[in-house]
Simulated assay, not measured.
Amino acid sequence: MQNTIEITCPQEILLGLRLDADQFADLIKEEAAVALFREGRLSSGMAASWLGVPRAHFLLKAMRAGANLLENNEDDFLRETSLL
């Protein structure tokens, strides 16, 4: 099941960003996915699925946005290497 969320955005924002409404919606969706992942509220797999991109692509995007991909502990290392 999918939900649609409607937000109100002044035209000035779209003009300032040089985006149409669909492009702005995509930007907000990407930013939300990265932010929720960074906060630990959304897994990388779920975020990638939501955006319709491969997990590796999402992880690169999140890393460029400053997300820590691993906490450098043994549990994270084992979890991530088990997927290889």
Rank of each mutant, 00 (worst) to 15 (best):
K61Y: 12
W50F: 15
S43H: 09
R55I: 07
L27E: 07
G16Q: 15
L19C: 13
G16S: 12
Q2I: 15
M63G: 09
R18I: 12
D22W: 01
M46V: 12
S43I: 05
T81I: 10
L60Y: 15
D26M: 07
W50T: 12
L69S: 02
M1I: 15
L59Q: 11
L51S: 05
E80C: 00
L36K: 05
A35S: 07
A48V: 07
N72S: 11
N68Q: 10
G45S: 11
A32N: 09
E71Y: 13
R64S: 14
C9R: 04
E74Y: 02
A33V: 06
E6F: 06
L19I: 13
D22Q: 14
R55A: 05
F58R: 07
G40L: 02
A33T: 02
L69N: 00
K61C: 11
D26S: 09
A56L: 03
A33S: 11
M1W: 06
L78N: 06
M46G: 15
M1A: 10
S44A: 12
L70F: 05
E30K: 12
S43P: 05
V53E: 11
K61M: 15
N73R: 15
E30F: 02
Q11W: 07
I7R: 00
L78W: 14
N3T: 14
I13M: 05
L51V: 04
L17C: 08
R55Y: 02
D75C: 08
L78K: 08
L70P: 00
V53P: 08
S43D: 13
E12Q: 06
G45R: 14
R18Q: 11
L60S: 11
D76A: 03
I7D: 00
L19D: 14
E31G: 02
M46W: 14
A48Y: 00
V34K: 04
D22G: 09
R64F: 04
T8A: 07
A47M: 03
L59S: 06
S49C: 08
A67E: 04
F58C: 08
V34G: 03
G52A: 08
Q23F: 05
R38D: 09
A33Q: 03
T4H: 15
I5A: 02
L59I: 13
L27K: 13
A25G: 03
G40W: 06
E39R: 13
S49L: 10
P54S: 10
D20R: 12
D75F: 07
M46A: 11
R55P: 00
E12C: 03
V53W: 06
R38P: 00
M46Q: 12
F37E: 06
A62L: 06
L83P: 00
F77N: 00
F24I: 02
F58W: 09
I13H: 03
L27G: 00
E80H: 00
F24Q: 02
D75Q: 07
F24M: 14
E39W: 15
R18W: 12
Q2K: 15
P10N: 03
